[in-house]
Amino acid sequence: MNSTMTALRPGFRRGMIELRQTFTNGQDLFGQFFWPAIMIVVMLFLRDNQFEGVPLNVASFALPSVLGMNIGFTGLTYLAQLLTVEREDGTLLRAKAVPNGMSGYLIGKIVTVSGITLIGVLIILIPGVILFDGLALNSVGSWLTFAWVTLLGLVATLPIGAVIGSLMKSPRSLGLIMLPLMGLVGVSGIFFPLSSLPEWLQIVAQILPIYWLGLGMRSAMLPDQAVMIEIGESWRHLETLGVLGVWAIVGLTLAPMVLRRMARRESGSSVAARREKALQRVG
């Protein structure tokens, strides 16, 4: 039995314990519901705005887009945040000292972040379906599309999040990537069709996974007429599969190498040095 299979059970158990702790802690629970609540309120203000020539309001267009954004943004940033925080406090070093500890640690984090992401999707999806008209998530094909876009989106973004977290020197460094990521989200066609943006911004957005997650979710949840406001008037399922698949392959190739490199550099002295720097900043 290889090391990954040996680490699978304890890693999964660890991830489920952390997931349960997240949703039984008041502060974490507030954080999980605050962002979805803000998104629902924003969409409520947009539901009276209609797209010209399409029987669809802006809120119904935005709901699946927000779900795709939530999957992509959480996958890219949440795992990165956990890795940087737990590297600084010594959790990673303790995991490294246990046989197959790093594999179990990573599996646990993937389970935790995947669970948080999926629950976050449900928190937005359930009230959204009740509040907003014009959705078409009413067939087996729609739900199958919803499922494969969600799963492929997680596979495409979680490994990249692990790479980002491995390269960041401290939790404070994450601020350097948050603003660019928020800017990229803003041009990914979340609240308006990407076709309304300048061509060069369309090209930038289509390189990244968040746009394709939003497009895939819209193809699952919106009526056929809504495709008229998309680029090429097509849901482009093959392109969605291809782009997200490429990101998944890149992430799954890079993440193990970068994580092994990070683990080799971890030591008691490096943890102590980071802790000393943190104490100096507080002082």
Results as ranks from 00 to 15, higher is better:
116 I>M: 07
195 S>P: 03
221 M>R: 04
109 K>A: 13
21 Q>G: 09
161 G>A: 08
283 G>Q: 14
69 M>P: 00
80 A>Y: 09
155 V>Q: 09
75 G>A: 05
195 S>R: 10
180 P>F: 01
171 P>N: 14
195 S>N: 15
118 L>R: 07
125 L>F: 05
11 G>W: 06
213 L>F: 04
242 G>H: 15
5 M>E: 12
21 Q>W: 13
105 Y>D: 00
128 G>C: 02
39 M>G: 05
191 F>N: 14
119 I>N: 05
181 L>Y: 05
83 L>W: 02
50 Q>P: 00
91 T>R: 04
232 G>E: 06
216 G>K: 01
269 S>A: 15
13 R>T: 15
235 W>N: 09
73 F>T: 15
50 Q>H: 06
97 A>K: 05
22 T>A: 15
81 Q>R: 07
27 Q>R: 10
226 A>M: 06
129 V>I: 13
201 L>F: 06
128 G>D: 01
38 I>Q: 01
2 N>K: 09
164 I>L: 13
39 M>P: 00
245 G>K: 09
73 F>V: 12
176 L>E: 13
42 V>M: 09
208 L>M: 13
271 V>E: 14
36 P>M: 04
213 L>I: 05
253 T>P: 07
163 V>P: 01
269 S>G: 08
72 G>P: 03
30 F>D: 06
15 G>H: 06
169 K>C: 11
170 S>Y: 04
42 V>R: 04
36 P>I: 02
13 R>K: 15
18 E>K: 03
237 H>C: 00
98 V>M: 13
223 P>N: 08
282 V>L: 13
25 N>W: 14
165 G>K: 03
135 L>T: 10
